[in-house]
Design a protein around this nucleic acid. Structure first.
Lengths: 167, 167
DNA sequence: GTAGAACCTCAAGTAAACTTGAGGTCAAGA
DNA sequence: TCTTGACCTCAAGTTTACTTGAGGTTCTAC
């Protein structure tokens, strides 16, 4: 009897530990299969291959993908996310502590973004309609923080060239 | 004597009304010349040509460019900025009231973005390090607002395909 | 054992917002 | 007049984060 119960438990354990296919990861993580291919190529996640050359994933990858998406929503570019993830231990499965460090790292950036946007909103209220926008002293026209303004998109657009040489 | 003073004043007025070249606009607005070409091609600003086919700008363009840049920093994509600017009167020079309408329109969006980021930060604090990230009930993994998340970059990245079919 | 779903690779395409380059014209000062 | 800097056009390149497509293999269930 006991052996029967044990084998049941083992079955479940085995199922739980069973590696995931790309399709499964895509489904559960809510991303496209092509995205997983892409993340792997960029070194954000890893996998191994089965005998037929198909990708297999450890369950841990689900959390990784979640973290990637959360970080992206805060406006952090993939490259930075990759760097942050690279600080996670490779040998052992990352612990709660490991993840918390990442969280702390990103929380600061998020706060900065929020502050910048808040300042911008306050200035927008007072500034955009008035005459000062056409004058050099307007805070909107000459923001102190000219680099790394806004998320991946805007950051890309404001660093190279135009802003460096002007503004 | 009076005529001399008058001619001085007229000189200054003429100087003030003198149309600007691309180079001048670029310098004063803090953008690259190529950016102005680009904005013009996209219908964000206008110019006329002199006899030698060079662009000339009304001074008003400086304010327009400022507004464009401010709007961009709030995370509004150029296309939307173009649409908003298109609501400005073409015949007369836009008044303070005209600009205020734009400001109001964008302030709402800015507020939304700030709120979303703030929620995200609060969730990040409680969530990323805990176990719930791997579970479907985690707010970070299943944010209620899946569309139009974040600025131009992220919005682009989250609308098409992957998210629609998953998450 | 075979159909059909799922997977593989690699190249190319997409979107936004510009920049860079080539090849040529225009304007202002010595 | 001549040189040099500022302009012009148009095509192509850049970055991020993926997606799409073509052409081919593997898995799974009947």
């Amino acid at each position: 009897m006991a052996t029967k119960v044990n084998s049941e438990i083992e079955k479940k354990l085995a199922e739980f530990r069973r590696p995931l296919t790309v399709g499964e990861v895509a489904e559960r993580a809510g991303v496209a299969v092509s995205t997983l291919h892409f993340y792997e190529a960029e070194g954000l996640i890893t996998s191994w291959r089965n005998s037929g050359n198909q990708r297999r994933y450890a369950r841990e990858v689900l959390r990784r993908v979640s973290v990637i998406k959360v970080a992206q929503r805060t406006g952090i570019p993939l490259k930075e996310i990759q760097e942050a993830l690279a600080t996670l231990p490779e040998k052992r499965t990352p612990t709660t502590e490991d993840w918390k460090k990442l969280s702390a790292r990103w929380r600061g950036q998020l706060n900065e973004r929020i502050e910048r946007l808040t300042r911008l909103r306050d200035q927008l209220d007072g500034c955009i309609g008035c005459g000062c926008l056409s004058v050099d002293s307007c805070p909107l026209r000459n923001p102190g923080d000219r680099l790394g303004q806004e998320g991946a998109g805007a950051r890309l657009l404001e660093i190279p060239g135009s802003v460096v040489r002007g503004q």
